[in-house]
Design a protein around this nucleic acid. Sequence first.
DNA 1: CTATAATATAAGTGAGGATTTATATGAGTG
DNA 2: CACTCATATAAATCCTCACTTATATTATAG
Lengths: 132, 132
Amino acid sequence: MSASSCLTIKFPERDQERIIPALKVLGEPNRLRILCGLGLECRPVTDIINATGLGQTNVSFHLRVLREAGFVRAERRGPFIYYCLADSELLRILHDLTSWLDARQTAVTSDAEQRARPAKRNSAAPRTREVT
Amino acid sequence: MSASSCLTIKFPERDQERIIPALKVLGEPNRLRILCGLGLECRPVTDIINATGLGQTNVSFHLRVLREAGFVRAERRGPFIYYCLADSELLRILHDLTSWLDARQTAVTSDAEQRARPAKRNSAAPRTREVT
DNA sequence: CTATAATATAAGTGAGGATTTATATGAGTG
DNA sequence: CACTCATATAAATCCTCACTTATATTATAG
Protein backbone atom coordinates (compact mmCIF):
# COMPACT_ATOMS: atom_id res chain seq x y z
CA MET A 1 0.00 0.00 0.00
CA SER A 2 2.73 2.39 0.98
CA ALA A 3 4.57 1.64 -2.24
CA SER A 4 1.48 2.04 -4.37
CA SER A 5 0.44 5.28 -2.71
CA CYS A 6 3.95 6.54 -3.25
CA LEU A 7 3.70 5.79 -6.94
CA THR A 8 0.32 7.42 -7.37
CA ILE A 9 0.80 10.47 -5.24
CA LYS A 10 -0.67 13.60 -6.63
CA PHE A 11 -0.99 16.82 -4.78
CA PRO A 12 -4.21 18.57 -5.71
CA GLU A 13 -4.54 22.23 -4.87
CA ARG A 14 -6.97 21.35 -2.14
CA ASP A 15 -4.24 19.44 -0.33
CA GLN A 16 -1.69 22.12 -1.06
CA GLU A 17 -3.83 24.78 0.47
CA ARG A 18 -4.35 22.59 3.49
CA ILE A 19 -0.71 21.91 4.11
CA ILE A 20 0.53 25.44 3.49
CA PRO A 21 -0.57 26.98 6.78
CA ALA A 22 0.79 24.00 8.70
CA LEU A 23 4.18 24.30 7.10
CA LYS A 24 4.19 28.04 7.68
CA VAL A 25 3.82 27.30 11.35
CA LEU A 26 6.56 24.69 11.25
CA GLY A 27 8.85 26.80 9.09
CA GLU A 28 9.90 29.13 11.85
CA PRO A 29 13.09 27.93 13.54
CA ASN A 30 12.34 28.90 17.11
CA ARG A 31 8.83 27.62 16.89
CA LEU A 32 10.12 24.32 15.66
CA ARG A 33 12.69 24.22 18.44
CA ILE A 34 9.92 24.75 20.94
CA LEU A 35 7.82 22.02 19.37
CA CYS A 36 10.56 19.43 19.06
CA GLY A 37 11.93 20.33 22.47
CA LEU A 38 8.65 19.22 23.98
CA GLY A 39 9.15 15.71 22.72
CA LEU A 40 6.59 13.51 24.39
CA GLU A 41 6.51 15.47 27.63
CA CYS A 42 4.31 18.16 29.12
CA ARG A 43 6.40 21.14 30.09
CA PRO A 44 5.64 24.39 31.87
CA VAL A 45 6.27 27.58 29.95
CA THR A 46 9.15 28.47 32.27
CA ASP A 47 10.89 25.27 31.19
CA ILE A 48 10.48 26.18 27.57
CA ILE A 49 11.77 29.69 28.20
CA ASN A 50 14.84 28.37 29.96
CA ALA A 51 15.47 25.64 27.41
CA THR A 52 15.23 27.93 24.43
CA GLY A 53 16.70 31.08 25.90
CA LEU A 54 13.93 33.10 24.26
CA GLY A 55 12.01 35.89 25.94
CA GLN A 56 8.87 35.02 27.87
CA THR A 57 6.55 36.97 25.64
CA ASN A 58 8.18 35.61 22.52
CA VAL A 59 7.72 32.05 23.78
CA SER A 60 4.15 32.86 24.70
CA PHE A 61 3.54 34.18 21.22
CA HIS A 62 4.96 31.09 19.55
CA LEU A 63 3.07 28.79 21.85
CA ARG A 64 -0.10 30.55 20.89
CA VAL A 65 0.61 29.98 17.22
CA LEU A 66 1.34 26.31 17.88
CA ARG A 67 -1.75 26.00 20.00
CA GLU A 68 -4.02 27.63 17.45
CA ALA A 69 -2.56 25.38 14.77
CA GLY A 70 -3.62 22.49 16.94
CA PHE A 71 -0.08 21.15 17.24
CA VAL A 72 0.16 21.53 21.01
CA ARG A 73 -2.29 21.67 23.83
CA ALA A 74 -2.14 23.52 27.10
CA GLU A 75 -3.17 22.59 30.62
CA ARG A 76 -3.13 24.88 33.56
CA ARG A 77 -1.79 23.37 36.76
CA GLY A 78 -1.93 25.97 39.48
CA PRO A 79 0.21 28.95 38.59
CA PHE A 80 1.80 27.05 35.71
CA ILE A 81 0.64 26.19 32.24
CA TYR A 82 1.96 22.98 30.81
CA TYR A 83 2.31 22.47 27.09
CA CYS A 84 2.62 19.20 25.25
CA LEU A 85 2.13 17.80 21.80
CA ALA A 86 -1.46 17.38 20.80
CA ASP A 87 -0.51 14.28 18.84
CA SER A 88 2.84 12.50 18.71
CA GLU A 89 2.11 11.60 15.08
CA LEU A 90 3.37 15.01 14.12
CA LEU A 91 6.68 14.25 15.75
CA ARG A 92 6.83 10.99 13.88
CA ILE A 93 6.32 12.77 10.58
CA LEU A 94 9.04 15.26 11.44
CA HIS A 95 11.23 12.38 12.39
CA ASP A 96 10.54 10.80 9.02
CA LEU A 97 11.65 14.00 7.39
CA THR A 98 14.83 14.03 9.43
CA SER A 99 15.55 10.43 8.51
CA TRP A 100 14.96 11.20 4.89
CA LEU A 101 17.28 14.18 5.05
CA ASP A 102 19.92 12.02 6.63
CA ALA A 103 19.52 9.23 4.12
CA ARG A 104 19.56 11.70 1.29
CA GLN A 105 22.65 13.33 2.69
CA THR A 106 24.31 9.93 2.61
CA ALA A 107 23.10 9.36 -0.92
CA VAL A 108 24.21 12.82 -1.95
CA THR A 109 27.62 12.27 -0.44
CA SER A 110 28.19 9.07 -2.38
CA ASP A 111 26.70 10.75 -5.42
CA ALA A 112 29.05 13.68 -5.02
CA GLU A 113 31.95 11.29 -4.87
CA GLN A 114 30.94 9.83 -8.18
CA ARG A 115 30.70 13.33 -9.56
CA ALA A 116 34.09 14.25 -8.24
CA ARG A 117 35.44 11.42 -10.29
CA PRO A 118 34.83 12.56 -13.91
CA ALA A 119 38.00 14.54 -14.18
CA LYS A 120 38.07 13.12 -17.70
CA ARG A 121 34.97 15.01 -18.65
CA ASN A 122 33.21 14.94 -21.99
CA SER A 123 32.75 18.68 -22.06
CA ALA A 124 29.53 18.91 -24.03
CA ALA A 125 26.89 16.29 -23.42
CA PRO A 126 26.77 15.50 -19.69
CA ARG A 127 27.59 19.04 -18.66
CA THR A 128 24.57 20.61 -20.25
CA ARG A 129 22.54 17.76 -18.91
CA GLU A 130 22.45 18.50 -15.27
CA VAL A 131 22.00 22.01 -13.94
CA THR A 132 23.42 22.57 -10.50
CA MET B 1 9.10 -0.95 14.66
CA SER B 2 7.12 2.07 13.60
CA ALA B 3 5.06 1.92 16.78
CA SER B 4 8.08 1.52 19.02
CA SER B 5 9.97 4.33 17.33
CA CYS B 6 6.87 6.48 17.78
CA LEU B 7 6.85 5.83 21.49
CA THR B 8 10.53 6.48 21.96
CA ILE B 9 10.89 9.47 19.71
CA LYS B 10 13.13 12.16 20.99
CA PHE B 11 14.26 15.09 19.05
CA PRO B 12 17.83 15.96 19.96
CA GLU B 13 19.13 19.37 19.00
CA ARG B 14 21.24 17.80 16.32
CA ASP B 15 18.11 16.63 14.54
CA GLN B 16 16.35 19.91 15.16
CA GLU B 17 19.14 21.85 13.57
CA ARG B 18 19.05 19.51 10.62
CA ILE B 19 15.37 19.82 9.99
CA ILE B 20 15.11 23.56 10.51
CA PRO B 21 16.58 24.67 7.17
CA ALA B 22 14.48 22.11 5.32
CA LEU B 23 11.31 23.35 6.91
CA LYS B 24 12.27 26.93 6.24
CA VAL B 25 12.41 26.04 2.57
CA LEU B 26 9.07 24.26 2.73
CA GLY B 27 7.45 26.94 4.86
CA GLU B 28 7.04 29.43 2.02
CA PRO B 29 3.62 29.07 0.40
CA ASN B 30 4.56 29.69 -3.21
CA ARG B 31 7.60 27.52 -2.97
CA LEU B 32 5.48 24.72 -1.62
CA ARG B 33 2.96 25.21 -4.41
CA ILE B 34 5.74 24.90 -6.94
CA LEU B 35 7.08 21.77 -5.29
CA CYS B 36 3.76 20.02 -4.88
CA GLY B 37 2.65 21.14 -8.31
CA LEU B 38 5.50 19.15 -9.81
CA GLY B 39 4.12 15.94 -8.42
CA LEU B 40 6.00 13.08 -10.02
CA GLU B 41 6.54 14.86 -13.32
CA CYS B 42 9.33 16.83 -14.91
CA ARG B 43 8.07 20.21 -15.97
CA PRO B 44 9.62 23.11 -17.87
CA VAL B 45 9.87 26.40 -16.04
CA THR B 46 7.29 27.93 -18.35
CA ASP B 47 4.79 25.33 -17.19
CA ILE B 48 5.47 26.22 -13.59
CA ILE B 49 5.13 29.91 -14.32
CA ASN B 50 1.79 29.39 -16.00
CA ALA B 51 0.53 27.00 -13.38
CA THR B 52 1.37 29.24 -10.47
CA GLY B 53 0.77 32.62 -12.06
CA LEU B 54 3.98 33.89 -10.49
CA GLY B 55 6.54 36.03 -12.27
CA GLN B 56 9.30 34.30 -14.17
CA THR B 57 12.09 35.62 -12.02
CA ASN B 58 10.22 34.85 -8.86
CA VAL B 59 9.72 31.27 -10.00
CA SER B 60 13.37 31.09 -10.94
CA PHE B 61 14.39 32.31 -7.53
CA HIS B 62 12.21 29.78 -5.74
CA LEU B 63 13.39 26.97 -7.99
CA ARG B 64 16.92 27.87 -7.10
CA VAL B 65 16.14 27.61 -3.40
CA LEU B 66 14.47 24.24 -3.94
CA ARG B 67 17.35 23.06 -6.07
CA GLU B 68 19.99 24.12 -3.59
CA ALA B 69 18.04 22.42 -0.83
CA GLY B 70 18.26 19.28 -2.89
CA PHE B 71 14.51 18.92 -3.15
CA VAL B 72 14.33 19.24 -6.91
CA ARG B 73 16.70 18.63 -9.76
CA ALA B 74 16.98 20.36 -13.08
CA GLU B 75 17.67 19.07 -16.56
CA ARG B 76 18.20 21.19 -19.57
CA ARG B 77 16.47 20.01 -22.71
CA GLY B 78 17.27 22.40 -25.50
CA PRO B 79 16.03 25.86 -24.68
CA PHE B 80 14.00 24.51 -21.77
CA ILE B 81 14.92 23.48 -18.28
CA TYR B 82 12.81 20.78 -16.76
CA TYR B 83 12.41 20.51 -13.02
CA CYS B 84 11.30 17.50 -11.08
CA LEU B 85 11.43 16.12 -7.59
CA ALA B 86 14.78 14.77 -6.58
CA ASP B 87 13.07 12.10 -4.53
CA SER B 88 9.38 11.28 -4.32
CA GLU B 89 9.86 10.33 -0.69
CA LEU B 90 9.56 13.98 0.18
CA LEU B 91 6.16 14.08 -1.44
CA ARG B 92 5.16 11.01 0.50
CA ILE B 93 6.14 12.70 3.76
CA LEU B 94 4.18 15.80 2.82
CA HIS B 95 1.29 13.58 1.94
CA ASP B 96 1.54 11.95 5.37
CA LEU B 97 1.34 15.37 6.90
CA THR B 98 -1.72 16.20 4.85
CA SER B 99 -3.39 12.96 5.87
CA TRP B 100 -2.59 13.65 9.46
CA LEU B 101 -4.03 17.15 9.20
CA ASP B 102 -7.17 15.72 7.66
CA ALA B 103 -7.54 13.03 10.27
CA ARG B 104 -6.92 15.52 13.01
CA GLN B 105 -9.40 17.90 11.47
CA THR B 106 -11.99 15.18 11.68
CA ALA B 107 -11.06 14.53 15.28
CA VAL B 108 -11.02 18.25 16.05
CA THR B 109 -14.38 18.77 14.40
CA SER B 110 -16.09 16.16 16.52
CA ASP B 111 -14.20 17.51 19.52
CA ALA B 112 -15.34 21.02 18.74
CA GLU B 113 -18.91 19.83 18.56
CA GLN B 114 -18.63 18.50 22.06
CA ARG B 115 -17.19 21.82 23.12
CA ALA B 116 -19.92 23.78 21.44
CA ARG B 117 -22.35 21.88 23.58
CA PRO B 118 -21.58 23.15 27.10
CA ALA B 119 -23.88 26.15 26.89
CA LYS B 120 -24.71 25.18 30.46
CA ARG B 121 -21.22 25.89 31.62
CA ASN B 122 -19.83 25.33 35.05
CA SER B 123 -17.97 28.58 35.05
CA ALA B 124 -15.00 27.62 37.22
CA ALA B 125 -13.64 24.10 36.93
CA PRO B 126 -13.57 23.00 33.29
CA ARG B 127 -12.83 26.48 32.04
CA THR B 128 -9.57 26.84 33.92
CA ARG B 129 -8.65 23.32 32.89
CA GLU B 130 -8.11 23.63 29.22
CA VAL B 131 -6.53 26.70 27.76
CA THR B 132 -7.68 27.43 24.26
C1' DC C 1 -7.47 41.93 50.75
C1' DT C 2 -2.47 43.01 48.76
C1' DA C 3 1.56 41.44 46.62
C1' DT C 4 3.97 38.31 43.77
C1' DA C 5 4.71 35.02 40.18
C1' DA C 6 3.34 32.98 35.82
C1' DT C 7 1.62 33.82 31.48
C1' DA C 8 -1.03 36.15 27.86
C1' DT C 9 -2.06 40.07 24.94
C1' DA C 10 -1.43 44.66 22.59
C1' DA C 11 1.28 47.76 20.08
C1' DG C 12 5.51 49.18 17.95
C1' DT C 13 9.82 48.22 15.40
C1' DG C 14 13.05 46.43 12.34
C1' DA C 15 15.06 42.59 9.92
C1' DG C 16 14.59 38.79 6.79
C1' DG C 17 13.08 37.22 2.77
C1' DA C 18 9.57 37.42 -1.10
C1' DT C 19 8.83 40.01 -5.10
C1' DT C 20 9.85 43.23 -8.69
C1' DT C 21 12.73 45.58 -12.05
C1' DA C 22 16.79 45.47 -14.75
C1' DT C 23 20.07 42.86 -16.85
C1' DA C 24 22.91 38.77 -17.96
C1' DT C 25 23.39 34.11 -19.74
C1' DG C 26 22.37 30.04 -22.54
C1' DA C 27 20.17 27.70 -26.49
C1' DG C 28 18.23 27.71 -31.05
C1' DT C 29 17.29 29.63 -35.74
C1' DG C 30 18.01 31.90 -40.11
C1' DC D 1 26.72 36.63 -36.99
C1' DA D 2 22.14 38.92 -35.16
C1' DC D 3 17.97 37.98 -33.23
C1' DT D 4 14.62 35.61 -30.33
C1' DC D 5 13.18 32.86 -26.59
C1' DA D 6 13.97 30.64 -22.10
C1' DT D 7 15.93 31.17 -17.80
C1' DA D 8 19.14 32.88 -14.29
C1' DT D 9 21.18 36.49 -11.54
C1' DA D 10 21.78 41.19 -9.39
C1' DA D 11 19.98 44.96 -7.07
C1' DA D 12 16.26 47.52 -5.21
C1' DT D 13 11.88 47.60 -2.99
C1' DC D 14 8.18 45.93 -0.40
C1' DC D 15 5.86 43.12 2.90
C1' DT D 16 5.38 39.92 6.54
C1' DC D 17 6.20 38.55 10.90
C1' DA D 18 9.55 37.66 14.78
C1' DC D 19 10.82 40.05 18.59
C1' DT D 20 10.63 43.61 22.08
C1' DT D 21 8.42 46.73 25.27
C1' DA D 22 4.43 47.74 27.87
C1' DT D 23 0.56 46.14 30.00
C1' DA D 24 -3.22 42.93 31.23
C1' DT D 25 -4.87 38.62 33.14
C1' DT D 26 -4.81 34.60 36.12
C1' DA D 27 -3.41 31.95 40.09
C1' DT D 28 -1.37 31.61 44.66
C1' DA D 29 0.36 32.95 49.22
C1' DG D 30 0.23 35.54 53.35
